[in-house]
Design a protein around this nucleic acid. Structure first.
Lengths: 118, 118
DNA sequence: TTGACGCATTCCCATATGGATATATGATAA
DNA sequence: TTATCATATATCCATATGGGAATGCGTCAA
């Protein structure tokens, strides 16, 4: 088997920077495709492809307005990501705390044996 | 260009379910490779490969103990994911709120024009 | 020294990717 | 109707994937 399809879930869809950028833009409000093309400086077919992936995992919704398709954010599928990552939040704080302790110790050691030069 | 390498960043590394599972396991404490192989019911070379990806993005660290390699979690590279996703938190709550409103309205309508049929 | 163990690496394969280019489709304007 | 605009889709390519199988390699036990 190759890599899981980008349309498998939000985890895979959002791994691509471009698609994250699209979601960032849509977070400010819905937009037709050409808006995104201009803002991202990306070829139109590529934007459409990325939007398709986002649509398939439910991260965006389309609305037809004349000959435009207006895309809107639906961030709900991001929730599982949020929940999964949040579980590690404490864990990384612990690491930083430990680092703080080590740094504090180093500083104390330095203070202790220095005779003030300056 | 093909898809971005899995070792590009935590976003890509974590898109794979197996790797998330490995991190979940390591969250409970460090473990040698064979432990993970048993727990994940996955071929050893595969586990080693996944661990390599995780190592390259800094999500795990290795320690050599005899002929074993003990892997430990380092969740700090998950922080960017957490920060990125968190920005959408409010957004998805809004959507749920709106849904709640719609549901409430539907219920009211139903209550209003129903003559109680048990 | 030999053999078994714990892991990493290598090679093979099928697959789907992101990008580029070209073209199809559907709506509006002329 | 025809031309044009806004998007989507199709094709082609290079690439790296995850999995399977085989093998390399360092460490420990006998």
């Amino acid at each position: 088997m190759a890599r899981a399809a980008t349309t498998t879930d939000a985890f895979n869809a959002v791994a691509e920077l471009r698609r994250r950028q699209i979601l960032d833009l849509l977070a400010a409000g819905e937009r037709p495709v050409n808006d995104l093309v201009g803002l991202l400086d990306l070829a139109q077919p590529l934007v459409s492809k990325h939007l398709r992936v986002l649509r398939e995992v439910g991260l965006v919704q389309v609305r037809e307005v004349g000959r435009q398709r207006v895309y809107a954010l639906d961030s709900r599928p991001l929730r599982p990501i949020h929940d999964w990552v949040r579980a590690f939040e404490q864990s990384w704080n612990e690491r930083f705390d430990r680092l703080d302790v080590v740094l504090a110790e180093l500083i104390e050691m330095a203070d202790g044996d220095v005779s003030s030069d300056e």
